[in-house]
Design a protein around this nucleic acid. Structure first.
Length: 570
RNA sequence: GCGCCCGUAGCUCAGUGGAUAGAGCACAGGACUCCGGAUCCUGGUGCGCAGGUUCGAUUCCUGCCGGGCGCACCA
């Protein structure tokens, strides 16, 4: 649970603030409060290991030129030795930055930490055990999973992992839309296919589900029950057909997601909310709080009271509650189960739903801030330069399984994780198939395989295979054996892993980890091409083996977060 | 018309209130008799346009232009 970067930043902050207090006591500077400032790693290495904008943001408060403040602070830190870190030099630069050039000591400590914590390196307690639910995919169980669902699955699962790594108690949940009008429609489609399969010339509903998959489902059912459903009333017949098909579809969805590396803790049925009266209950509750009214025979929710453009129907004139009503009941249930934070991943086509959902939570007395809805932009599928429309109705879509058949699970996951949820994703099928070997995930995995290969080589040559750790490693590093730029760059990147997870958790941004891992792999490949590990001088080989082992550990951890395998050979 | 997202290199995309804006692909050239060449190294007139806030804006705000998606008693 060590975050090296955070520790250094804190140490620098302490020095800065002590310096300011001393300067004020000496009457050299005046201020009431220290404005918020940052200690960060500069983009350019020539600007030091860490830098702060403190002097610039203090300028107004202290009524003094930024560079002058910076000089005073820098001077007093050096003079009184306020910084509790081995430091090369502290400089004032540019418009008033204070740049800290640290001795590589802190980077050496990082390596000791990584090898100490191993598969736990990166974990933190940011969340302090907060109970978080991540609900994602929640595809209609009337068809197979398409590319949009796949993106949601990769993002949701990775986000859940990131939250786990940062000290949250996470539940992954899938909401099964097994009620409502699309189920009615599903039943009508199944019925038509059933009758057609038995030789009846009946029309197929225009708005029905045209996919081949439900024809197959019906044929399997007929193997079991034959034409016995012809005797049933249409309503009963549809109910039986839906029951059978839903079970089958749901199993297929579970299997696909499982194959994609996604395992849910909870599968939550919408139908149960209706059957247990929870939907009616929540409508009543909203009424009691004064947020509903009747118009044209329907019950409406006052979404406009929460900034929405218009109100929304909860119960139709025919007495059947809407999807929205059920979803409110579902979200109430989430909070009632004790989740302190609820995160949903929705497709961009549902973004209009966000404000009223939050409004409904506020109306029920829950904190709408505890509900985070990540809007994921849609996936546009191209083939041969043309857009393929994805639609369950027409049955024309590429499924998650087909995608995995084409490019494999690792590449598919990485492809979705590497882009921010905000970006519109154009997926060129031809390109994805053709370039599957050019997917960056292989670049990362290759770095890992190469490291494994180093250890294999070492074994074959009969060399010492155990990697130095703890004090022995610390002592050897203290001799300054690791000096190369490429080595220090790698250590610096390893240092950032815990911080990167914290940022990804705060920003709910899984793509940060994809990027981080790619950069780490790149730094390793550069190092590998420039320097040898095996066959160099004994001490150097020992510390380089430790370094390479450290990289391996972090690659494994990062890949684990993303649900991607770390192959030993490729 | 209203709302949300996006507009960064030829293409696909990262990125940040700061000091010289990055990566992959594509293109051109080059690399160890040695740990895996699925690698590395070298090569770049780019933040849609116009205002505003700020010591400082590609980043924040407003308007405009362009693209995607919503705006059902569907989900």
């Amino acid at each position: 649970m060590i975050n090296p970067v955070e520790n250094v930043k804190k140490t620098i902050q302490e020095a800065l603030e002590k310096a300011l207090v001393i300067l004020r006591e000496e009457g050299k500077i005046s201020f009431n409060t220290i404005p918020s400032y940052v200690v960060e790693v500069p983009r350019e290495k020539v600007h030091g290991d860490f830098a702060t904008n403190l002097a610039m943001v203090m300028a107004r408060e202290a009524r003094m030129a930024p560079r002058q403040i910076a000089s005073l602070v820098q001077g007093i830190i050096v003079e009184k030795n306020l910084l509790a870190l081995p430091c090369e030099k502290i400089e004032v630069a540019g418009p008033g930055f204070i740049n800290f050039y640290l001795k590589p000591q802190w980077l050496y400590d990082v390596l000791v930490t990584v090898l100490e914590e191993e598969e736990n390196y990166g974990r933190s307690n940011l969340g302090q055990g907060q109970k978080v639910q991540v609900e994602f995919v929640s595809a209609n169980p009337t068809g197979l999973l398409h590319m949009g669902n796949a993106r949601g699955a990769a993002l949701g699962d990775t986000l859940a992992s990131i939250l786990e790594w940062t000290g949250h108690e996470v539940t992954r949940e899938f909401y099964i839309n097994d009620a409502g009008s699309q189920i009615e429609n599903f039943g009508l489609s199944l019925e038509a296919r059933y009758l057609q399969a038995l030789g009846h010339d009946v029309p197929f509903p225009e708005e029905g589900y045209h996919g081949q998959d439900i024809i197959d489902t019906v044929h399997r059912l007929i193997q079991e029950v034959g034409d016995s459903y012809l005797q049933l009333s249409p309503a009963k017949r549809r109910e039986k057909l839906v029951e059978y098909a839903l079970k089958e579809k749901l199993q297929a969805i579970r299997d696909s997601l499982s194959r994609f590396g996604v395992e849910y803790d909870v599968w939550f049925s919408e139908r149960t909310l209706h059957e247990t009266g929870k939907v009616a209950e929540v409508v009543k509750l909203l009424g009691e709080k004064g947020y509903t009214y009747e118009k044209d025979g329907a019950v409406w929710f006052r979404a406009t009271a929460f900034g929405d453009e218009k109100d929304e129907v909860l119960v139709r004139a025919n007495g059947i509650p809407t999807y929205f009503a059920a979803d409110i009941a579902y979200h109430k249930n989430k909070f009632d189960r004790g989740f302190e934070r609820v995160i949903n991943i929705w497709g961009a086509d549902h973004h209009g739903h966000v404000r009223r959902m939050k409004g409904a939570m506020a109306a029920l007395g829950y904190n709408p801030e505890a509900l985070d809805i990540i809007i994921m932009q849609l996936v546009r599928l191209f083939q041969g330069g043309e857009i393929l429309r994805m639609s369950k109705r027409t049955g024309q879509y590429v499924t998650l399984d087909e995608l995995m058949d084409e490019v494999g699970r690792d590449a598919a996951r990485y492809f979705f994780i590497m882009r921010s949820a905000d970006s519109h994703l154009d997926f060129d099928l031809d390109l994805a198939k053709k370039q599957s070997n050019e997917n960056p995930v292989y670049y990362i995995q290759y770095a890992h395989a190469r490291i494994c290969s180093i250890f294999r080589q070492l074994a074959e040559r009969g060399g010492k295979q155990e990697v130095l750790k703890g004090e022995a490693l610390r002592n050897l590093l203290a001799e300054g054996v690791l000096q190369e730029e490429a080595e220090l760059d790698l250590l610096r990147h390893l240092a950032f892993f815990p911080e990167e997870l914290v940022l990804a958790a705060r920003e709910l941004a899984p793509h940060r980890i994809a990027r981080y891992t790619l950069e780490l792999a790149g730094l390793f490949h550069s190092f590998y091409n420039a320097h040898r590990v095996i066959g160099v001088e004994e001490k150097l080989q020992a510390v380089r083996l430790a370094l390479v082992r450290g990289v391996q550990v972090v690659l494994q951890n990062a890949l684990a977060v993303m649900g991607i395998s770390a192959p030993e050979r490729m």
